[in-house]
Every structure is written in structure tokens, then in C-alpha cells.
Design a protein around this nucleic acid. Sequence first.
DNA 1: CATGAATGAGTTTTCATTCAT
DNA 2: AATGAATGAAAACTCATTCAT
Lengths: 211, 211, 211, 211
Amino acid sequence: MKEKIQPRKQPSQTRSRERVEKIISATYALLQEQGLAAVTTVHIAKKAGVSVGSVYQYFPNKKAIFVSLYNEYLKDIRSILDDFDNEPYTSMGWEAFFVSLHSKLSEKENEQNILPELEQAFHLYPEMREVDIDHSNVISERIVNFLSRYDFPGSKEKLTRLSHFIYSINGGFWDFRSKISSKYHGEANGWELAAIMGVLTHYRNSLSNNA
Amino acid sequence: MKEKIQPRKQPSQTRSRERVEKIISATYALLQEQGLAAVTTVHIAKKAGVSVGSVYQYFPNKKAIFVSLYNEYLKDIRSILDDFDNEPYTSMGWEAFFVSLHSKLSEKENEQNILPELEQAFHLYPEMREVDIDHSNVISERIVNFLSRYDFPGSKEKLTRLSHFIYSINGGFWDFRSKISSKYHGEANGWELAAIMGVLTHYRNSLSNNA
Amino acid sequence: MKEKIQPRKQPSQTRSRERVEKIISATYALLQEQGLAAVTTVHIAKKAGVSVGSVYQYFPNKKAIFVSLYNEYLKDIRSILDDFDNEPYTSMGWEAFFVSLHSKLSEKENEQNILPELEQAFHLYPEMREVDIDHSNVISERIVNFLSRYDFPGSKEKLTRLSHFIYSINGGFWDFRSKISSKYHGEANGWELAAIMGVLTHYRNSLSNNA
Amino acid sequence: MKEKIQPRKQPSQTRSRERVEKIISATYALLQEQGLAAVTTVHIAKKAGVSVGSVYQYFPNKKAIFVSLYNEYLKDIRSILDDFDNEPYTSMGWEAFFVSLHSKLSEKENEQNILPELEQAFHLYPEMREVDIDHSNVISERIVNFLSRYDFPGSKEKLTRLSHFIYSINGGFWDFRSKISSKYHGEANGWELAAIMGVLTHYRNSLSNNA
DNA sequence: CATGAATGAGTTTTCATTCAT
DNA sequence: AATGAATGAAAACTCATTCAT
């Protein structure tokens, strides 16, 4: 009974895969150029140079396209986090570690430039929130790992909340970027890092004081 | 050609004003209780206890209702900023000042609880982004004033961007709150402050080092 | 969650009632002239001289229109059965009674001419079968009453099945009528009665023989 | 202009014939298991283990599949009628004859269990009614033959109508069966016979009285 | 011949907006 | 001014049929 929001097929390398790509990137382009309200299945199909029927051949419904688009983006983010998870970065102090992590992630984000509009889509359809939350959780879990490695104090729950918070700073940043000319994104990147470090430092200090 | 999104009239004290209020708060309530998708003009009218026709008597279209609702919220925020603008808070250092400002604003936000859903509404229609940006600008301008008082270095443009960035942290925070149980909002409030202070400190230091 | 198939409102005598009538009779006409496949909401609206929106003002979905159409017809049938239920017809023998009942019902059917196509609609949508079955049940129950009055033997369940069977002869008759020129409907009416009497007589005899 | 609803070819013994069979029985199975609404060409093809393209190799359109399915069923019915036509059953009286005929046909129907759903398919598309009527005619013609053998009075036209009527009782019976548990079908079978005999007896008597 | 991805007209339904009363 | 029924454009989605491979 519950609506699916996963793509219909996992097409391999064939022409099918190309079509899926075309549909996803048409959605991306529309979202970027005309906003969420303009993303109708007919528009997507037209922009992708494909028939509406084809869209539904690969996706059970519109939401599934958004989910795919989001997953596409998150795959890369997760793989970066995985890299940091596996490599023995523990030789450096926590500050250096997070600086390095942030820089890697920003780099990716800059080249991929995922849309704030996509986040909107997630809020528009309640069913999609779950996907969003799942991803937040996965990412937070990773951050918790890093924090634990560096002996950040506090219960697992508290560290999870902290991680969520840090991740949410990034969300705000997306919104910022959509309002400010992209030539200042680099500048703001430094500020984002400062914000994150501000939170982490504050957290460390306040908890060790309590001890 | 361009669609109006300002309310039709600025009715003074009459019954009209009451109706406008009812419509706005019905919209707010719907947004809160049922989410953006449930906010149709018919629902608004029903909830407000007026007819659809009446809604269109006071608002040229649905967007205008969202704009009014947003303005309503921002009025309070602005008035707080105005207070800080007028009072001679310069006796304290900048850190204390921003702590105090943040605390006042958080207090207001907590009692008013503006909705993430409202933010979404703004992103749904591209035309409304302008309104959003206008507001960001007004608020940033105020923050720029404060920064100048305390001799934060940099061009007006740069300070404006910085202010925007600080304001955007708040946007991320909204998203955070929608995902995390409200009993931890207080905790996160402290983190938000830490993030802001992190940015400001970083900014101060980096620029004075450059000099 | 379950879909409604009852009309949205029970409009009184006003203009609304007229519209509902128009929609129902347009549906009826379409069904008759072009067959079930041609009955789309757009066609109904056009034929009724009304907008699609209006159709949905009064009916939650297409099925509900069919249900209303069917109810319209059955109301009269039921009221005839009620009449026979209340009046003291017991003075006559069972044969005379059923002849009289059949004649009253045929009269009504001839002037109302409900469509075999409508029955089809009921088979097309599984949800609507329930409505159909409910009606069959109501009608069979009435017939069971009559049979009991005249001491037809057998369990209530068996009498119910028998009543269903008798009612189903009428369904076959509808199909017959749709194939044969209406000037012979009267003739066939007599045959229908003969068929019914055949079944009833057979039933009586076979059971009393068993005893 | 008029759409074809006859199968594209009359393939003989080859693999082709097998495919046609598979398509027809897949349609039958779908109709039975999931109802008319689920019978899409894609489903049929999948169930038959062939491609959609293949379906269109053998049938010009979907309707033609239903027609073939119906023909398949009627072939058997017709062959039974043919048997009775050729054999010298005239030694028995008409009552015994029709009892015997009814029993043979019921037997076939029970093992073949043609679907009420198929009947619906016929009423869905007006073009298909013709096919339905053709079949009714063929069958009625046979029944007329039997009636003539036994000197049933009346014009050929009248006897044809009577035959149609008798055949239509069977249609009603289908509907009955779809509503009532199959363990009572035998019981109802007897009622069907009684109904038919009722009509025939009535017809004989009324006409001989007129003479 | 066989395949099944691609097509797009057609279907149901929603909802912002208008306008007769 | 107020009402709320009426409007109809537009949205998501389906499926019979075609056609390149």
C-alpha cells in the first residue's frame, strides 16, 4: 500500500542508463532554472528529450526522481566520509582532522553544487522526509565516529545530536549560497569552517569544565 | 504582467483588519498542523471562518498570504533589532553584545516558533525568493550596523555577506529543530551561539592579521 | 483510507439538486449511447453542460456517480417491495401474489429502463461490487419475507439463495432486452414471469416431496 | 475506418498456433485471477511468456483477444448443440430432450467455467456487442431448430426471440454464480432448468390455447 | 519473426481564482 | 462587501500500440 520512492530498475550500462541520467539531469536543471514548482513530469520529459511514458518506465513516480537525484549526490559525500573512516588520520589532532575533512567535502560540494531546491522537495512531500532523515542519520553516525576517536565526551545520543547540528550548518550554508554570488562562496567556506570549529571547541570546553 | 504579492489593502482598525488577521493565523495554523500541501485557499477560508471570496478581497492571490505571514513574523524580529540599534549597548564588548542579541532573538523565536514550512513556501515560488532576499537584506543591514559599531574591519559589502552568513546559520538551525525532539532545542541553542561566535572571532582575527 | 463512493452532499431542492440530476442523467445517456468505455469524467461534464470541477463538487469520484445512478433506480424498486410488504396481500394465493408483484415491478422497469451497461460498471470496479451485493441482499431479503409468508419450506439461507436466483433472472432479462427490439419486451415479460413461476413451483414441489 | 476485431491469421499447427493459445489462456487466467481492470496487453504478454510485440503479431488489438477467447468457449457450446442436432433424439419427448440438453451444457459450463468478466469485456466496447449478438443468434438458431422439431408453434421470428430469452436466463445465472458460493451452484442448476422449463411450458400452453 | 523500450493521447483529479447572487 | 458554487487549466500517471534493433 505504501508508495514506493525507489527507482523501478537498476539499469546497467546500456541505453537505459543514459535515459535515467538524462531524466535526472533534466530534473536537476529544471529545479535550478525554474524552481521546484516548475518541475512537473511533463516538463522533465520535455527537457530530457524523452516521453512522459519513458519517465514512468524508470521511476514509479515523481518523488522517486528526486530521491535518485539526492542519492546521486550523497553517494559521493558518503564515500568521502568512508575514506576518512578507513584511513589512519588519527596522527593529526582533531582540529586538523576536521579542517581536512571539511576541505574535502567543500571541494566536492563546489563541483557538484547540489540544490537548496532539492532540499525543498524533501520538505514538500512528507514521505520524502524519511529519506532525508535516513541520510542525516548515516552522516551523523560517521561524524560521531570521528568525534569518538578524538575522545569527545558525552553520551552517544548527545554526540549524535551534536553531529546533526554540525550537518545542519551545512544546510544553512546552501541557502546562503543560493542568495550570494558564487564568487564569494570560497570566502564563506572559511566561515562555515569557523562556525563548525566554534561549535566543536565550545562543546569540548564546556564538557571538560563540567568534569 | 508581473503578479502582485503584496496585500490588497492596508486596512486600519475596522472589521477588515480582524479578517486579515484571521486569514493569516488560519494559514499559520494549517501550515503547522497539516503541512504546506494542505494549505489550499478553501482550507484557509474554512479555518478562518470566512468565505473564499473574502480571502480574495484582501489578498490578490495565495502567495500574498504567505508574504503577509512572513512579514508578521519578521516585524517582531526587526523590532528587536531596532531596540538594540537605538539603545546604547556599546558599553559592553562585542562578544557580550552578540550573546545578548542572540539570547533575545532566540527567546522570541521560541515563543513564536516560525515554521520551517513557511520557509518552504518561499522556495516553492521563485517570485517569493525576492521577498525572502529583501528580508535577509534588511536584517543583514542591521547586523552590519552592529559590526561597524565594534569596528569589525572590511568593506560594507563584505560585512553584508558576513551578516548574511550568520543569518543563514539560523536557517540551518530551523531544519535541525524539525528533525530533533524539541527538548534538545535549548542545548542546540547554545551550539548555535557558539557557531556564530566562532565565525565572528575567526573573522576578526583573520582580518586584523592581514593588516 | 478506503475510497468513498457515496455522493459528497445530499443537496435539497435548490439549483444544486438540478446539477446533480444533470450529471446523473448525462452519465446515463452516455452509458446508453456510447457504452461504458466512453464514460469519462470529461465527457460527463461536457454532456451535462457543466465543468469537470462541478462534477467533483458533488461526487468524490467517478464511481460515486455510478452508485448514485444505481441508487436512483433501486429506490423505486425498493419502495415497491416495501408496499407489498406492508399491505395485507395475504388474502390471495402465492401465485397471484407473485404475478401481481412481477407486474408492478415490470411496469416500473419499463418506464425507467435501467441499463445493462450500469451493471457492467459494477463489475468493472471491484469496490462497487459491494454496493451491488448489498442491494441484491436487500432485495432478496424482501423476497424471502414473501416466501415465508406463504410457507415456502427450507432454511432461511436456502430461501435467500433462491431469492437471489430469482432476482438474477431479471439480470439476464436486462441483457435480453438490450438485444431485442423494445416492441417485444412485453412478450418477453410474460416469459420472465413464467420462468420465475417455473422456479417457484419446482421449488415447492421438490421440497414437499422430500417431506 | 472500422476497427478489426478478428484475429490477424488463422495459423495452423505451427508454433504460431501454440503462441495464440498461450495468449488466449493467459488472458483468461488474468481475467479470472485479477479482474478485467488488470488485463493490460503488457500483463497478458508477461503471463503468456511472450513479448508485447508478439501479441500484436497475432491480434490486431486487444479487443480481438477477447473475441478469440469468447469464440474458443463458444466452439464447445456449439459443438454440443451440433451433436444434438445430428443425433436422432426425437424418440424422447420435448421435456426430456431439453432436460438432457441442459444437463450436457451445464456440464460443459462447469468444467469450462466461462467468466462473467468476459461478458463484461463485451459490454465495455460497443463494437464487441455485434460479436456477442452474432453468437446469440447462432445459438438461438439452433434452439429454434429443436423447438421446431417438437412442433412448438409460432413464427420463426417469435421462436427466435423465445430462444434468445432462454439463452439470456443463462446470462443471469452467471451473475448469480459470481455472488453465491460455488458449493450451491448445483442446487441453482436445478432452478435454472426449472426456469427454462417454466418458460417453455408456458409458451406451449398459451399458444395452443390461442389456437 | 521476436523483442520490449518508447511513445503520447487520454484519464482522473485538484485547486487557485472568478463572479453571479 | 460577502458568499461559495462554478470554472477549467494543469498535474500525475496509465496503457494500447508502434518500431528500431
